[in-house]
Design a binder for these strands. Structure first.
Lengths: 189, 189
DNA sequence: CTGAATTTTCAGTATATTCTGAAATTACAG
DNA sequence: CTGTAATTTCAGAATATACTGAAAATTCAG
């Protein structure tokens, strides 16, 4: 469908369309975002319409969704009515936004549901067991959320350093282990 | 639709059905899994059919999917033709399987696509820029994958200790910072 | 203000996904 | 083996999601 996109850029867009559809976002919106991420200059709705070969109205709705995810920024040019859209220039910023939004939309409501079910008094053994599983689940999700929140506080530069250092994560966890006085004696591979 | 499920268990099942549908898994399969997770004893297909009020064939297909995700284990009882299904008893095992499977199904293919596009020689400035974004993206995904893989190596008990210690993750990251000689001077809140 | 350029909305259509019942297949107790 | 209890398959129906074009609403240059 796309018109003047190079094969390389097309492949990328198609792949992330498919990926998007595996997450909440739908295929077309995923493609729109992929296009925006790859383009240096902000694009207007018509640019997207043409590049992806989809209807103008579909683009309008897609952009609305991307904006609600805070993944896309709207810009105006002086003396121009037209609106231009762009994705953050920093990939880590994008990832942080994605994580944050999914937390708000999925994790938080889940934790809230679990808490509500946990304050009820179990009516029988079956419910007592069920509540135990829910409790474990709540604990786990809360902890993983904490971790990701800590990681999200790193800025792109810090993350870059971490990356360059290779997989020293093992070392950090070992350190953590020592801090915790872990019983299991297993080195990092 | 469900018959003899208590309201508490119903709520849980409904919520995780919705959640499942936001991920690759569909609503009904999500409900089936929620039911299995909450039940102490393994269930047979007919139990699920009855509890959720869906067709027997739907249950059969759903179970097939859950098995392909390795989220559910099949068991036989001596002298019984019937098959019984159960979810792991440990929530962390479940989470690890989910993470692992999503990595295989989504992350790995994405990294592979990115690598293929990165070995091409950019035909023009536009492609050169696009490749740069792809490179950053590849780096980031690879690093985050490494982190999660390290975390996945922890067993349930280690994770439990981590949890009980509260959010000491900040401290570890600070430690890491010092190790890296971070420039930014910001304490853990 | 005005009106042309632009964006948004939405009802209807197209597409994709999920679900079902009936038929085919499989597995195993006897 | 055989018969039956169980599971699986699959074509078609039901449902849900995505997409479009036309019409309405909005915005701002002049």
């Amino acid at each position: 469908m796309p018109e003047k996109l190079t094969p390389m850029i097309q492949s990328f867009i198609l792949h992330f369309g498919e990926m998007g559809s595996r997450w909440g976002i739908n295929r077309t919106v995923g493609q729109m975002y992929a296009l925006l991420v790859l383009s240096k200059e902000p694009l207007c709705a018509d640019d997207i319409t043409e590049a992806l070969g989809i209807s103008r109205s579909n683009v309008s709705m897609g952009l609305k969704e991307l904006i609600s995810w805070e993944l896309v920024k709207l810009q105006h040019r002086p003396g121009e009515r037209k609106e231009f859209y762009s994705a953050p220039g920093d990939v880590w910023d994008i990832a942080k936004t994605l994580i944050e939004q999914r937390r708000k939309r999925e994790i938080d409501p889940t934790l809230s549901t679990l808490r509500n079910l946990l304050i009820e008094t179990p009516a029988n053994d079956e419910e007592a067991y069920a509540q135990q599983r829910m409790r474990e689940m709540h604990e786990l999700i809360e902890m993983l959320t904490l971790w990701t929140q800590e990681i999200q506080r790193l800025d792109s530069a810090q993350l870059g350093k971490l990356l360059k250092l290779g997989n020293s994560i093992g070392k950090v966890l070992d350190m953590k282990d020592r801090l915790l006085g872990s019983s299991k004696k297993e080195s990092t591979k």
